[in-house]
């Protein structure tokens, strides 16, 4: 299933392309690529863009937004989201309905996701413009990396972070093209488990698995 042959109607397409088909790494997705993402039903519901006053409904609304953002990020392999610029993307702006989620509400959802462990501000803290989106949580990534190392028989050997992200060995896996910082968070989890060790400096970080 090719991404180039997308229909113009976002709601009509129900196809779920495999993760490997997409190589997009940033939020600036092309129109044709975003068309292939199947938005959930709520995306086309006008009231979905208004912050609800009923607490139960509000919780459901946040949950659904959170799910939508993560699914969107997973589809487009977005690891970092710049909130100010993302407000104008399809994710938060439904051009057909002419409804958008305003900046305050986006931050509200992000805060909700942070509590859930699904997002984190870049640089830490409780504010900022760019957030990490953990459509896989760091320990999930850690598990993924471990299995990769296991399966490729590289236990005991030393790998550089660059190798993991850009190297040919990880091609075809989700690790390929990962955000470096997210990968580092994952590797740190492995280190804490006592199954790896990180060494080296900023640019040339290496990791040894045991």
């Amino acid at each position: 299933m090719a991404t180039a042959t997308a229909s113009t109607n976002p709601s009509a397409s129900a196809s779920t392309p495999s993760a490997s088909a997409s190589t997009l790494a940033s939020a600036s997705a092309s129109a044709s690529a975003s068309a292939s993402f199947a938005f959930p039903r709520e995306y086309h519901f006008p009231a979905f863009y208004t912050r609800q006053t009923n607490l139960t409904t509000l919780h459901a609304q946040r949950t659904k937004w959170s799910a939508l953002i993560l699914a969107y990020a997973r589809h487009h392999r977005i690891f970092r989201l710049a909130l100010s610029s993302a407000a104008d993307t399809d994710l938060f702006f439904n051009r057909r309905l002419d409804r958008r989620l305003n900046a305050d509400d986006i931050r509200d959802v992000v805060d909700f996701m942070r509590k859930d462990g699904r997002a984190e501000y870049v640089g830490g803290g409780s504010s900022g413009d760019v957030v990490f989106l953990f459509w896989r949580k760091p320990d999930e990534w850690a598990g993924l990396v471990e299995t990769y190392v296991d399966q490729s028989g590289q236990k005991g050997s030393v790998l550089t972070v660059y190798e993991l992200v850009e190297g040919d060995g990880t091609k075809g896996t989700d690790i390929h093209g990962m955000d470096t910082e997210v990968l580092l968070k994952a590797l740190n989890v492995i280190v804490k488990r006592g199954k790896a060790q990180i060494f080296g400096q900023d640019d040339s970080l290496g990791v040894k698995f045991f």
Partner: peptide, 20 residues
Amino acid sequence: GALCREEGLEGLKFWVNYID
């Protein structure tokens, strides 16, 4: 929880709660 709200240019509107 039966309805939900939408605040827009046309004022406050109420919808069947499809969110929850």
